[in-house]
């Protein structure tokens, strides 16, 4: 989903799937894909993947960290970094108000969680984007935290793993959001020179400025099944070329067949896949 589609969808349906999951007392949920009624607990025990059809629900950052890394191994960093309305940007709502609302809703400063974790007791510098915070859009804080995540990998000489989910650059920070693409990609040049592996896990959705920078530059690009991954959003393309887009266009499987990702990996096998490739290139044996 591009940021445009996200806004369009938000008009129609203000409650997204993950929010439904978080409402206490709601014990069941309907699968968006096969319409099966699922118990919330069954879904959670199955890595938020529909047991019937395999549909991958969006996941909140902390659940994802718990699923992939060693139990309780995650230590957050840079939690104090927060956004500021330095352009005095105001549309129907001021950026300051949008920040306040997003922070209240997600209980975090901005759209990414980062820090150190371990995988089979091997240290990993990790970042997870949070789509529920202003569509996971990348402004100064996201760019800075991703860059620091890469630089931590460089300083500690450990692999870097980033989970992306983002509608693209954050318009409310104007040109500064665009420059985060150069900053994050540039940090990856340093990491690459140092011979340290970088894994990008592309989750639904990864579009715009995020897809055109650190998200697509992994030594390994792994995509979650069905994830929308694109530079230009489907709506923008449809408006430009004035024709309907083919089924499955810009989905993870489409990117696989066009050579843009290494593998489409079922979330339930993601930990094993990460462990295997990192052991192959870096020597992170699963103990």
């Amino acid at each position: 989903m591009s940021i445009i589609d996200w806004f369009a969808k938000r008009e129609k349906n203000t409650v997204d799937t993950t929010e439904k999951l978080n409402i206490p007392g709601h014990l069941w949920i309907k699968c968006d894909h096969c319409q099966e009624i699922l118990f919330q607990k069954d879904l959670k025990d199955n890595a938020h993947v529909c047991p019937k059809c395999g549909f991958h629900f969006r996941m909140v950052a902390m659940d994802r960290l718990a699923l992939i890394f060693d139990p309780a191994s995650f230590v957050p960093e840079d939690e104090n970094l927060g956004p500021t309305d330095f352009l005095s940007f105001s549309d129907s709502e001021s950026y300051t108000d949008r920040i306040r609302k997003a922070q209240a809703k997600t209980k975090r400063q901005d759209a990414v969680v980062s820090g150190m974790a371990t995988l089979n007791h091997n240290p990993i510098s990790v970042a997870v984007m949070d789509f529920s915070y202003m569509g996971g859009s990348m402004g100064s804080v996201v760019g800075e935290k991703i860059t620091r995540t890469i630089e931590r990998g460089l300083a500690k000489r450990c692999p870097v793993v980033v989970f992306t989910s983002s509608g693209g650059a954050r318009m409310q920070e104007g040109i500064m959001s665009l420059m985060q693409m150069a900053k994050t990609s540039g940090a990856l040049d340093l990491l690459g020179r140092a011979g340290i592996p970088y894994v990008s896990v592309l989750c639904d959705p990864t579009t715009g400025g995020t897809s055109a920078s650190f998200a697509i530059l992994g030594d390994f690009n792994f995509a979650e099944p069905g994830a929308l991954i694109s530079f230009a959003g489907p709506r923008v393309i449809e408006q430009t070329i004035r024709q309907k887009l083919p089924d499955g266009f810009q989905r993870a499987e489409f990117l696989l067949s066009h050579g843009m990702v290494d593998r489409v990996v079922d979330r339930r096998e993601l930990r094993a896949t990460l462990s295997l490739v990192l052991d192959m290139v870096w020597g992170c044996p699963a103990v």
Partner: peptide, 13 residues
Amino acid sequence: RYAKFRAMGVFTS
């Protein structure tokens, strides 16, 4: 060149 782009971004800490 890296230092130039590395410095770009406005945030509170």
